[in-house]
Design a protein around this nucleic acid. Structure first.
Lengths: 217, 217, 217, 217
DNA sequence: AATGAATGAGAATTCATTCAT
DNA sequence: AATGAATGAATTCTCATTCAT
């Protein structure tokens, strides 16, 4: 019985791995069940024994990968107690994880995230969960006095994740031609210190400058 | 003769407008020529008198819009001579432009940018051109002493555009539920000053902290 | 008035000439009215002022050409009074005519002749008329004692035209790579004398051999 | 397994048979996949499981038929050892074969042979192969002293096949109104002995007559 | 008489999903 | 549980012909 179960899980994994490759190199519509079946060395019909339909298979990919991501990240975070290093580690591992799984990165960033139904899927909950963990780290940082308190944690998170997602996207669109992790320190620096020259007066935080930004809407 | 020409231009515009709506609410594959024709109140065949095929029509959308974007931005930039305000204006207008054209934003950000052939299309050149203009503004800012010189202009641009694209994407994925421009000042602030608490020691720029960032790859 | 008429005829000719080229390089379905119009340097609509529809234009091509063919052949036959030379001249001119008009040859042999409606068209009558002229020459030959009388003129004509059409077809299918008129004498020889070795006993004309040909149907 | 395979072959045959009928009564363009599917009593999509596309299906027809043609002809040639009878048998079987398969004859002679891509197709190789077999028989005849040696085998073959193809074509264009095999003996006679009256002097083979044939090109 | 923009019917092909074996 | 043959809906694109100017 146990053996049976294991065999099922193995088959599932086998299909998902084939799916990652195929969805990674093709848009959702372009990717074909038949190619996935071929890669997994099974019959097309068999896929429907494990997944309800094509979309179900598609959305099952990150469910697996995010779990893995968090488990490994958790290990990396062990023994780190200051939020500064936690954050730095998160940035590093985020990039590292996708660098190691480019096909997955591709379908996740360029297709899944952007698809209409994804936000309603169970898998999306896991993404949300990760985002909440990030927010926690940021809030810790604010408590510790490392991160500005005059800006909401949400905004900080938006900036942090936006930067990471933007770089990841650029890397994928440039066909992984540059090293995703090059200048990783510089990214952290920019996130932390901003783009302002140290000589320059503050931008945006002084009442005067706020006036300058005449926001129409 | 002139009248004829105008009529052709009008028809073209009419088709593009219908296409923006349809592509904005559906993925490229889901969008159908027949729906576009219906919306434009013309026969399907007529579309093929103006565009080579479905993809040509798709890629013609930003070609039109980017031109418009730059022309209007240009007006807004008139009379502004310091890079600080130029940048601020760019941020503002970028968000404003997409806020005013959400269907276009949707197809541009969530579909086009991500499509395999887009980077080879003529339209992509226009995107590149905009990015070059942004880099110029940044370099001006560096000359004026407003923006850090210890980081390459490219990296600054990546941060700036990454932040904007990330917010735009989040806005679209949240179904435009929040105001794209709310906290616009805060975004500028974060870009400019970073997330660091003013009390905190520098992150990333001091030799010690650099050591902490043990980059494995 | 007369001038008007001439202008019309000129236009017609102009369209037919363009059509010969286009139909010569494409099958009837592949050939497009728009390409013919382009070649003729007129608008598509104009073609419909001169021809009822695409098929009408197609079938009008040989109507023009056959007339020309016969007129010129007639000149060549002037002064020739024995059927031997008339026939020889016919063979020569048939090949020569098509050699000089390969695009026309192509549409005539490979498309028109083979098309369902051609035999019902007015043009087809002209083809029939030519065939009748050939039969006359053959009968003359039989009267003069040059050509066998034990075989019906129709059968002789079938052989003669079959040989010519077969060579023409082969020439076109081989992309006009060989000279259509090479060995023209040999063709005549074979038609005249057959393939039998002079040493061999008669084939087919003796009662015995007829028995050998046990025709089942 | 064997059963499965047989089933697939059967389906293929079933589609080809439907295709022969439909292509036999329509030009390639006019023939529709949907009609073929209807006739074969299967879904349109099924055709694409067996053939790459419409053209592949079209060209697969003679591939099947030529094989059959040769196999049967081979049986008929068994026990015949003189080239005279081999040739006679070939002529007979060629006509008989097409008489029995008029729809196939139609698509083969009036469409396929004439189509641009056919000469590049694999199927065309089979036609070439048949032609080579015919040449062999002719050369045998020359060795045996039955057939003239003063004319190249190729020319003899051109005459022979030209006559057959011409008759076949005429039969098809006349809507099979006459009996394809009537006067079959007469055809053989003409091929063998030519059209010349036995009383007439040689035509084309004497030096004088060659002069008469003043070939301009 | 000439134009050429607009039409819209028509056909090939793809592929996720089902289901009998 | 696994298979893979069969399905058929759905969609792009072409092009002869028309007709208002």
């Amino acid at each position: 019985m146990v053996k049976q179960h294991k065999k099922k899980d193995l088959r599932r994994k086998q299909i998902i791995e084939a799916a990652i490759e195929v969805f990674g190199n093709n848009s959702f519509k372009e990717a074909s069940i038949s190619e996935i079946a071929q890669r997994a060395k099974i019959a097309e019909g068999t896929i429907y024994q494990y997944f309800k339909n094509k979309e179900d298979l598609f959305f099952s990919i990150p469910a697996e990968m995010i779990e893995e991501f968090w488990d490994e990240l958790d290990l990396h975070l062990q023994g780190i107690h200051d939020s500064f290093n936690k954050m730095s580690k998160f940035v590093w591992f985020y990039l590292y994880h996708f660098k190691m799984n480019p096909a997955y990165a591709r379908s996740m960033m360029l297709e899944m995230r952007v698809s209409k139904n994804f936000s309603k899927s169970k898998t999306h909950d896991k993404v949300v969960w990760i985002y909440e963990r990030v927010l926690e780290i940021i809030k810790e940082g604010q408590e510790e006095g490392l991160i500005r308190k005059d800006v909401e944690g949400y905004a900080i998170r938006e900036m942090l994740m936006g930067m990471l997602e933007a770089r990841l996207t650029r890397w994928l669109l440039k066909d992984e031609k540059f090293d995703l992790m090059e200048n990783y320190g510089e990214i952290c620096d920019l996130i932390f210190n901003g783009i302002k020259s140290s000589a320059a007066s503050n931008w945006g935080s002084s009442p005067q400058s706020m006036k300058l930004l005449n926001i129409a809407n």
